Amino acid sequence: MDPLLTGEQAVLGAVLLDPRQLDRLDWLEPRDFYRPAHQALFAALRALGGAGHPALAAEGTVPLSWLNDSLAEAGRHVRGLTASYPHALIAACPRPANAPLYGRMVLEGAIHRTVAEHAARLLAVADEGTRQHEADGTVAQADVLVGVLADLAWRWGAPPRPQAPAVPPAVVAAAAPTPGQIEDERFLLALLVHQDGAIGEVFGWLRPGDFADPGHGHLYRCLGALHHRGEPIDPATTLWEVQRRGLLADGTLTGERLSTVLGNGAAGSAEWLGEQLLRGSLNRTAAVAARQIAAHADDDRLAPGQLIGQALHVLGPVDQVRERWRTATSPPEPQPRPGADQAARVSAALARSPARATGRTMPGPASPKIPHVVTDPVIRTRPHRSPS
């Protein structure tokens, strides 16, 4: 027996037996049913109920016109419905009063199915973005999936918040890197080793996990450690850092792989190459998240609230890579003109100062009185004395 099919039949049979159950199922939509015939039949029942069918006011036995009219209305949109099928639905309903519970069974199946469909779309868009070397479609599809999860959470009555699973799920491996990706990563690493200051162009937003080859990611981590400590980066210091971290001893890196990076110089734009790697990392992270969400959606043991929360949790790494992608591709902010900050501070200070009254002097503290000295306007000169 299929529990989802049983739930769809039970809710339809409940409405056919008691049309007033539609008032308790206003949150259920025809698209929530899996079978097209059930979608058409539930849409017909809602349309007849909204038009005020006489069966809604009937007391006791439901008139036969309720079944016939619903069957005729549904037959306009889908084929294959026979006159006996409504009676089979009625027989499949244990108790009409349990219609809301049957409806939640249908909605739960619809949530699992909808999450799986959008996860498959995200996976397809991410794979196509990898082939076309673009990430805009992946970003847009990830936003669509987040919006769908929020809508499903609202319909189910649970807050749309990330929820880590109690038991860590099986790790979903990313697709194997292509030879072209390996070559691009090797070229970028050689550029960072041989070109002074090149790592400063990507250090703020490129991470070791963005490399498709784990060995390249470990090598980039060594370069980042040298840059963080303010030490020079060249083939000798890089080889020393690799040795200190034991990457040669444990087989993470080999001398042959290191020689392709440390032995050959490179010239180019580290920022441009880093953006290409970050674009691939975004598509790759989204593809891994889509596979994990699809695995959660196939797990019938997960309640809808758990499924939505775990799907949002899985999308967390995608959002982190996307934020770094925005940082890498956003244009630089314009620098303020010299003296602009000082002028702005003066204007703000004047705006905070109280307005001065015009035409009169503000009263101030009393000043001490100074005695007035009257002077004789006649200019007194010293008497002239003749010489004796």
Rank of each mutant, 00 (worst) to 15 (best):
Gly49Glu: 01
Asp23His: 12
Asp26Met: 04
His53Arg: 02
Ala58Met: 06
Leu45Asn: 10
Ala10Ile: 06
Asp23Pro: 00
Leu64Gln: 14
Gln9Asp: 05
Gln39Ala: 09
Arg46Val: 14
Gly52Tyr: 08
Leu22Pro: 10
Phe42Asp: 13
Ala10Trp: 07
Pro30Trp: 01
Ala44Asp: 11
Gln39Asn: 06
Arg20Glu: 04
Leu12Gln: 06
Ala51Glu: 15
Pro19Ala: 03
Leu48Tyr: 11
Glu59Asp: 14
His53Cys: 02
Pro54Arg: 12
Leu56Met: 14
Leu16Ile: 12
Arg24Asp: 11
His38Asp: 09
Arg20Gly: 11
Ala43Gln: 14
Arg31Asn: 04
Phe42Gln: 13
Ala14Asp: 10
Trp27Tyr: 07
Leu45Cys: 11
Trp27His: 08
Gln39Glu: 15
Gly60Gln: 07
Phe42Asn: 13
Thr61Gln: 12
Ala58Tyr: 06
Leu64Val: 15
Trp27Pro: 02
Ala37Phe: 01
Asp26Lys: 08
Ala14Ile: 05
Leu5Ala: 15
Ala47Gly: 14
Glu29Tyr: 10
Thr6Gly: 06
Arg46Ile: 01
Tyr34Phe: 14
Asp32Met: 15
Leu45His: 13
Gln9Asn: 02
Leu25Lys: 09
Pro30Cys: 08
Thr6Gln: 12
Ala43Asn: 11
Gly13Glu: 05
Gly7Ala: 15
Val11Lys: 02
Gly50Met: 04
Arg31Cys: 02
Ala14Pro: 05
Gln21Cys: 12
His53Val: 03
Thr61Cys: 01
Glu29Phe: 05
Gly49Cys: 11
Leu16Val: 13
Leu25Arg: 08
Ala51Met: 01
Pro54Lys: 12
Leu5Met: 02
Thr61Trp: 00
Ala10Phe: 05
Val15Phe: 07
Ala47Tyr: 04
Thr6Asp: 12
Phe33Ile: 08
Pro54Leu: 07
Gly50Pro: 00
Phe42Met: 09
Gly13Trp: 04
Gly60Met: 06
Leu41Gln: 14
Ala10Val: 05
Ala55Arg: 02
Gly7Thr: 09
Ala51Tyr: 02
Ala58Lys: 07
Pro36Cys: 08
Glu59Cys: 02
Arg35Phe: 03
Arg46His: 07
Gly13Thr: 07
Gln39Asp: 00
Asp18Ala: 13
Leu16His: 11
Ala57His: 10
Ala47Cys: 03
Ala44Lys: 00
Asp18His: 07
Leu5Pro: 00
Phe42Ser: 14
Arg20Trp: 00
Leu45Met: 15
Gly7Ile: 00
Leu41Glu: 11
Arg46Ser: 10
Ala43Ser: 15
Leu12Phe: 05
Gln9Ala: 14
Gly13His: 04
Ala57Cys: 02
Asp23Asn: 07
Leu16Glu: 08
Glu29Pro: 01
Ala55Cys: 07
Asp32His: 15
Leu12Tyr: 06
Leu12Asn: 06
Leu17His: 04
Ala10Arg: 07
Thr6Val: 14
Thr6Ile: 09
Arg24Gly: 01
Arg24Cys: 03
Gln9Tyr: 01
Phe42His: 13
Ala55Met: 00
Leu22Thr: 08
Asp18Glu: 15
Leu41Met: 15
Pro63Glu: 03
Asp18Pro: 02
Leu16Tyr: 12
Gln21Tyr: 03
Leu25Glu: 09
Phe42Arg: 13
Tyr34Asp: 10
Ala40Trp: 09
Leu22Asn: 10
Glu8Val: 07
Ala57Glu: 11
His38Phe: 09
Ala51His: 00
Leu16Met: 14
Leu22Glu: 10
Ala40Met: 09
Leu5Val: 12
Arg24Met: 06
